[in-house]
Design a binder for these strands. Structure first.
Length: 538
DNA sequence: ATAGGGTTAG
């Protein structure tokens, strides 16, 4: 050990550092603790103000960093930012990044534009957030590509982070050839993030086989995100068995599954109606102590509802420690769809009287669905009114479709038609189709004709309009016209896509096509069905 | 002093 340097001990003590004082201030160190929540912040904020340290740029950036973090509050962050007299580069980057993660990424983009006009110019750390914002928007790759051009001019495209967010932006906006071009530029790097973005992009556009090709031929090691992206891609494309198979491969390769994996698997089980598989996933989540965040809980509830096991769904909902709005929405919709409309309405009322949460547009889909199944016209109308007047929620086409069903199922066909014609949004084939099926139920040929006409116009390739119309005629005993509709359908060669369903028996998933005879026990099944003494309770 | 990329429900 060397003796202490005497020259050092002789030099005068350094002046007290203001930044040292600030960084040691208990309020600020507390903000840097990752377990600090927004509630803690509310408690300490008055102290921060009192000490006057917010006037110090270093201190105020600290506070900004906290508010802009996922555990903070973006509105506070924005307020703080606008009160900064001369935000520095760090502050600009922080606020832009924070907005790029929200559901309103436009703010990130407009802040970036403000920045271009300000004294501080963006640098390489600024761009990923802006491309991410464009990616989040998912539709504005035009402006995004202009920014891409700017990056090329500045020679920043070699930056791996920027390069990857550009790929992500194009892939997420459905511009696959653009994405692929940028991807190929630096394919020799074999960056796993770039691969993941491409896999997700293809899957999102329905090109799941392309995803799989990339997945199989990767020049780099797959991460858990790669596996999850491929699995969720399969689920998105309704290749459910493939999704489950890939999960087994993932386990064989000893890749740690995550909450994301669980959510994808639960969705697959929900689609398949595979209750035993779904239960297994739920069990797996419990055994491995996955975080029961809102999305995971929602997926579990949704899986049980779609598999017809509403009791399990209710149990999960009731035991759930932190019930987010989406958990409420899932259970309300689940009850409404499983013949337990009154309980759905009861829970909706509970949600309305809750102090922490308030119903959103999805919650209203739930109650309106319940009203539709109950044939409760007045109740349905009341909720629809209340949604607009008390909650200031603009009805979407889905809400209108629910109302058309509520009115139509009750035989109020004229009123339903008026509602469609008076909507401030463009009707689609689905809403006319739903009016059409009500006409079928009540044998109203006049309105049915108009509705069918609209369905043809809006979606000439969809056979359901023809089929429904033919059913309307059949229901009113006009068989010749019914036949005519079917012939028209053949002429336009719009074969109705065969219905497909699946069911799980003793842990095995069986798939069926409507009218299909592919299942290995077809003969037995049809025989059972034709036996009038057979009931499904057997 | 400090900072940037990719996954998920209805």
């Amino acid at each position: 050990m060397l003796p202490r340097c005497s020259a050092l001990s002789q030099s005068p003590p350094p002046p007290p550092s203001i930044s040292k004082f600030l960084s040691d201030h208990p309020c600020l160190t507390m903000l840097q603790n990752p377990s600090t929540t927004i509630n803690h912040f509310h408690q300490i904020y008055p102290h921060i103000i009192k000490t006057g340290i917010t006037h110090n740029p270093i201190a105020s950036t600290r506070v900004l960093s906290f508010c802009a973090s996922p555990s903070g509050n973006i509105n506070y962050a924005y307020k703080l930012f606008t009160r900064m007299p001369n935000p520095n580069l760090y502050s600009w980057n922080t606020i832009i990044r924070a907005f790029s993660r929200t559901s309103t990424p436009q703010f990130a983009i407009s802040l970036f534009v403000d920045m271009l006009y300000s004294e501080i110019q963006p640098q390489h750390l600024t761009y990923p957030s802006v491309f991410k914002a464009y990616a989040q928007l998912g539709d504005d790759a035009y402006h995004g590509s202009q920014l891409h051009g700017r990056v090329l001019k500045l020679g920043l495209q070699k930056d791996q982070f920027i390069h990857n967010t550009i790929i992500h932006m194009y892939a997420n906006s459905g511009l696959l050839s653009e994405a692929k071009r940028v991807f190929d530029e630096r394919i020799e790097l074999g960056d796993v993030v770039a691969f993941n973005s491409m896999i997700m992009g293809y899957a999102k556009c329905g090109e799941i086989d392309e995803s799989r090709k990339l997945f199989d031929n990767m020049s780099t090691t797959r991460t858990s995100v790669t596996w999850n992206s491929m699995i969720s891609g399969y689920v998105r494309n309704v290749k459910l068995i493939e999704a489950l198979e890939l999960f087994y491969n993932m386990q064989e390769e000893r890749i740690e599954p995550s909450e994301f994996t669980m959510v994808s698997l639960l969705n697959a089980c929900a689609h398949l109606g595979a209750l035993q598989h779904g239960k297994w996933v739920h069990d797996y989540i419990k055994r491995n102590h996955f975080e029961l965040n809102v999305i995971v809980v929602t997926a579990i509830i949704d899986m049980y509802c779609k598999c017809g096991s509403i009791e399990n769904a209710i149990e999960v909902f009731e035991k759930c420690p932190r019930r987010g709005l989406s958990c409420w929405n899932s259970i309300i919709i689940g009850l409404a769809m499983n013949g337990r409309e009154r309980e759905a309405i009861e829970l909706f009322s509970k949600l309305e009287s809750s102090k922490l949460l308030k119903p959103d547009s999805v919650s209203f889909i739930g109650v309106l669905t319940a009203c539709k199944h109950l044939g409760a016209v007045d109740k349905g109308k009341d909720y629809f009114e209340s949604m607009m007047n008390n909650y200031k929620i603009e009805p979407s086409i889905k809400h209108y479709t629910c109302m058309v069903d509520v009115l139509g199922q009750a035989g109020l066909l004229e009123e339903a038609e008026e509602l469609i014609n008076g909507m401030p949004i463009e009707p689609d084939a689905i809403i006319w189709g739903s009016l059409l099926s009500s006409c079928r139920k009540h044998g109203n040929v006049q309105i049915a004709k108009r509705a069918a006409q609209r369905v043809y116009e809006l979606n000439p390739n969809d056979a359901s309009g023809y089929v429904l119309m033919s059913n309307v005629h059949a229901a009113s005993n006009k068989f010749e016209e019914a036949m005519e509709q079917r012939l028209l359908m053949k002429e336009n060669s719009t074969e109705k896509e065969p219905g497909c369903s699946s069911i799980e028996l003793y842990g095995e998933v069986h798939e069926f096509l409507a009218g299909g005879r592919l299942h290995h026990k077809t003969q037995e099944i049809y025989h059972l069905l034709s036996d009038s003494s057979f009931t499904f309770e057997d």
